[in-house]
Amino acid sequence: MRINIEVNGNLKTYDVAPDDYLLDTLRADNIFSIKRGCETSSCGVCTVLMDGKAVQSCTILSVKAEGHKITTIEGHQKEAKKLSEHFGHQGADQCGYCNSALALTVHAMKDEIKEPTNEDIKEYLVGNLCRCTGYEAQHRAIKLCLEDDE
């Protein structure tokens, strides 16, 4: 069946099966920032914003995205670049597999919470798992990035 989704500001039409997941539909359209990690909404690397809210594309059927606005980090390159500079300086980069989704979720958090505390940040990003960094350097970088905005 054909569905219409606005992806990063562009109206797109996809031919999908009823049981296709959004992750596969978008990756087939060369959106490489979203990744496959667990198939159970547990790791966060497939995060996209649906109408501005972070959701897991590995468990959302593509047909459910019909008529919605989907944003990935491809649509927020400036924010990604800015956060990545802090990541670089804090030594928070490792394998990078979770980083695009993390940047996107940080962006969503900024929209949702004004001046988030340490606890707010941890709570908001708890679903973005990272196995490489031990989180501490990521946390420093995210805080500095938020301070930049103030």
Binding site: N30, F32, F87, H89, D93, Y97, S100
Partner: peptide
């Protein structure tokens, strides 16, 4: 020296990089 990694920026920006890409 604590220099930023050579690849972190492109990866966070979502560039094609991993095997399945």
């Amino acid at each position: 020296q604590a220099l930023p990694s050579v690849d972190g920026k492109g990866l966070m920006m979502g560039k094609k990089a991993y095997s399945d890409d």
